[in-house]
Nucleic acid binder design. Structure first.
Lengths: 211, 211
DNA sequence: GCCTTTCGATACAGGTATGTATCGGATACA
DNA sequence: TGTATCCGATACATACCTGTATCGAAAGGC
């Protein structure tokens, strides 16, 4: 059985200094792309934000594209990790109803303007590139793999059980993506947030059953 | 009572020739932005696609931004118009079940790669600009205003009635946006399409009741 | 603490995008 | 058909961005 493997070919030794430089560039990239858009951002602008010149950039990355990918993957993983940590804490004492449980998750998933802009552009970008498409697909899988076990436990605490894991997972992700725009665009943020939680609740209710 | 009014200040006389040139540029812009991304597209590239030089562009638009906005609004309106036309046709004879009715709508709303890319970028762009934000918000309203009356009629034919118009409308739009990415990213397109229709059905079922 | 290696700054060459000013053919109208 | 206006092509000046090649300072091994 063969698998496609993505790896960085010219793997340089990752010294302490290098790691820090890379990280500063990654952070600067997120800022710059969120503020101005990926296409409108030059290598030089990213470097300036990180207090480097282009020398540092070309010593660490081959292209803006590579930086974009690295940044997006890192932040995606971080977000998922944070979510896991937040929901793993056993403060489930006060989750009486299904809606409380869902709201608990909904509040743990941030509605982040900066991140949304970057992700929207990254997704559009990925649709133009088969390899990046795989990356986005892999992330969807990773989200489900993280979220569903958490939901399993959460549902158990309110006496329910998931009936269709795949459908629920994808539906929640879709609902999250779709409602995030609405929350960010609409004047009345609070109304949108409430609708969002309501929608999540409807979905969870539909794709679970009482034990 | 005052209202903010958006208008083109230097309204030039719209002759036949001018209208055609504008349209060719608008069409070329959609192509170019979808293929390369907005930020990566130069004025010259758009013009080349439309078989013009930049002279034609600067005689019709002040900036790429203005062209992007004009193009997006035109296509948005067109899509909504097409949808309305498609669903207004009284071929509701064979819509026996709720799911048939929903599938009828779901199939009428295209899952369009090109348009998705452009819209994702436009939305991200709009989040950086208060005026464009209003434009996107207005489009959401327009969608609901078009979609809900159509759903009213459709539901009537299967003996149901909407219980929460606002919630259903926003939920369907969110589900549409969210599932569109999934359909375009996932390897198994058909599975994603089916999940999409299922999700719509769940939502419509939840936010309507039998008469 | 010395010496090698690493890595970011700087300088340079080449390419490309922008916006404007001007020109001449096309178009409209009498 | 003649004439005035419109509008797209062309040329130009300018700014900016990229990638590479080189250099010197900082880091790390022994």
């Amino acid at each position: 059985m063969y698998r496609i493997q993505f790896c960085i070919v010219t793997e340089k030794p990752l010294t302490r200094r290098r790691a820090e430089t890379r990280q500063r560039l990654l952070d600067a990239a997120l800022e710059a792309f969120a503020e101005q858009g990926y296409g409108a951002t030059s290598v030089e602008q990213v470097c300036a934000r990180a207090n480097f010149t282009r020398g540092a950039f070309y010593s660490n990355f081959d292209s803006l594209d590579e930086l974009f990918l690295a940044m997006w993957e890192q932040r995606s993983a971080q977000l998922l990790h944070d979510l896991e940590e937040l929901l793993a804490a056993p403060d489930e004492a006060n989750l009486a109803t299904l809606r409380d449980a869902v709201a608990h998750v909904a509040d743990a998933v941030p509605v982040d303007d900066e991140w949304y802009r970057v992700t929207a552009e990254f997704t559009a970008h990925a649709l133009r590139n088969p390899i990046l498409k795989q990356v986005v697909a892999a992330r969807e899988d990773a989200i489900l793999a993280t979220l569903l076990p958490l939901l399993d436990r959460l549902m158990a605490t309110v006496g329910r059980r998931i009936t269709d894991r795949d459908a629920l997972g994808h539906a929640l992700v879709a609902a999250h993506d779709g409602t995030t725009v609405q929350c960010l665009i609409e004047d009345d943020q609070q109304a949108a947030r409430t609708r969002r939680t309501d929608l999540f609740t409807v979905l969870v209710e539909h794709y679970t059953e009482e034990i």
